[in-house]
Every structure is written in C-alpha cells, then in structure tokens.
Design a protein around this nucleic acid. Structure first.
Ligand code: FES
Ligand code: FES
Lengths: 140, 140
DNA sequence: TAATACTTGACTATTTTAGTCGGGTATATA
DNA sequence: TATATACCCGACTAAAATAGTCAAGTATTA
C-alpha cells in the first residue's frame, strides 16, 4: 500500500503555499525549486486542483496560484479526490462472472475492504492543510 | 491507494481455509476453484505464507495446507507482512540529494505520512482471521 | 506405481505511474 | 506595445510495479 507521487506532491505543494500570505500568488516555478518537483508535473497537478476549486490561478507575470480557501478549511480528503487518488481496496469488478464481482454474492473479504476504505478515508477527512504547518521547526 | 492482489488473495485463501476443520489439509486446487484464483499464483503466495509460519504444508495426495495456528491468533498484519505488502506512504529516499531525503531535513509532509502508516497498520493489527468469519450468511 | 499436490526460480505480459513535450493563451510592467 | 512571465491543456513515452505463467522438479499416499 502506498501513495502515488501526485497526491504526495499535491499535499507538499499546497502546504508550501500555505506558508505565504493568502492572496499572494505563488508561482509553480518557485514551488518546483523549493520542493524539487518537476515544474511540468506540477502544472498537471495544479490544473486538477484548480478544477476542484482548491486553488485559483492568476495569470501573467508575477502571477501564480492562490489558495481559494483558508488552509483550515481544506481537508486532505478534498485534495486526494482532486488528483483522482481514490482509496479503493476492494478487488471486485462488476464485469467478472466468477469470483469477486461484488454483485449478488460478495466474497468473504468484501466487507473487510469496505471497512478499511472507510477507515482510511476517515484519516483524510479529519486532517486539514493547516494541521501540517503547526509542527515544530520546519526547514523546507 | 489500493491493495495488490497478492494480499487480497492471501486473505481470501486463508479465510477460505479457516472454514474447514483445523488439521484437515486443504488443497490449493480446491481454493483455486472456489475463489477463482489462479492455482499457480496461489502456489507462489502460499510459499510465502509457509515461510512465515502461517501455514504448514502436507505433501502427497490428499495433501494440502493447514493453518499453523488458530484463526483467532492470526492477525492480518502478519499476513500482509508475509506477502511483502508493506504500508509505506512516505516518499523520501535516502539517496536523493534534494527534496525528500528523510535524513537531516524532513520535508513538511513527512510526519503526516508516518502518522498515516501507523494508522493503517493499526487496522491490520487489530483484525484477525476469525473476525472475517463471523459475519452473517456467506456463500463463498 | 500412478496420481496428487507441494516446491522453486525464472520469465513475461500487462497495467500503472511518473513525468515530458509541444504548442498554446493571458497579463503585467518596462 | 514589446517582452517576459506564468498559467493552460492534450497527447505522448519511459520506467517500474504488478499479476500471472512456465518448466522442471520432489514427496507422499492409495
Ligand atoms: S472484494 Fe468485493 S466481492 Fe470480493
Ligand atoms: S516524505 Fe520524508 S522527507 Fe519528505
């Protein structure tokens, strides 16, 4: 079980932004340099964050991205959803005839994975961006 | 975030076995048929379960695998460990010079992922095989 | 002695992930 | 108004991980 880079980078980048005064556009170039994340990859990620109303963009020189809401009100679950990172541990697929098809007859483990999904999502529901900032000294 | 088939199949197969009287060898062929899992893949999985003292094998005809302990005493965390499914959501690698290297300077999100890992592992620590069996009617 | 069933390492196809490329458009400021 | 900055967006590709197969066994029992 691991996280993909898209989600990790999204959280890293947004946490980076949260350290600056709100309404002050932060350019992806700067985030890219500070966090060592490919600029082009960041662009891809921020497009999704924008579509999902987490950030808004300011074009032109001196432009960048701005958090659309206070970090306190941005839950990690929203960020994950925005970058298409779903928590889905069940293995059943509607199409398959045999085994796990999750339809009429659920397999013996189906309920377990459902429970796990809810459990993990719960973690993300209860964390927001500003939670990340209030840990003792941080350098980058 | 998702689970790989190895872990899912391992849990499914062991849950399947738990339904039979202990000391009664269950052949992989039977599990394969009941759970629609490739026999050859199951063999691979059970090799690991055996090495990790979760099952023991009985060779020859009428042979098969037997749980080494009572299902009550087999935690899901052990099963996951056995099939090399680690929960590891941090992104840092020791080698990389820049960004997340998890050494002297941990990035702003490192602690978060550590916390998440512990949280998820906790779920597996507190579930055992027999927990899966005591849900109302189950067909397969 | 035939059939069953475990043993093991190596190999391969498929899918997913991570990241790049190219060719844009909008805006600020000099 | 020219130019640099920085967002916009779809398509593409390399690399890694996953899922599963193959081949060639060995041990045991009926
Ligand atoms: S996991 Fe849903 S039916 Fe098996
Ligand atoms: S996740 Fe460990 S340093 Fe970034």
């Amino acid at each position: 079980m691991k996280l993909n880079t898209k989600s990790r980078y999204a959280v890293m980048a947004l946490a980076d932004m949260s350290k600056f005064p709100i309404n002050n556009p932060v350019s992806l170039r700067d985030i890219s340099l500070r966090q060592s994340i490919s600029l082009l990859y960041l662009e891809q990620i921020f497009l999704k964050l924008k579509k999902n109303e987490i950030v808004k963009s300011v074009r032109g020189s001196n432009g960048g991205y701005v958090l659309k809401r206070n970090p306190k009100n941005i839950k990690l679950s929203e960020i994950f959803q925005a970058v298409d990172q779903k928590v889905k541990t069940v293995g059943c697929k509607k199409d398959s005839k045999k085994g796990c098809n999750g339809k009429s007859v659920k397999c013996i483990t189906h309920e377990l994975w459902d429970e796990l999904d809810i459990y993990i999502n719960n973690f993300f529901e209860n964390k927001n961006l500003s939670d990340l900032l209030m840990t003792k000294e941080r350098k980058n």
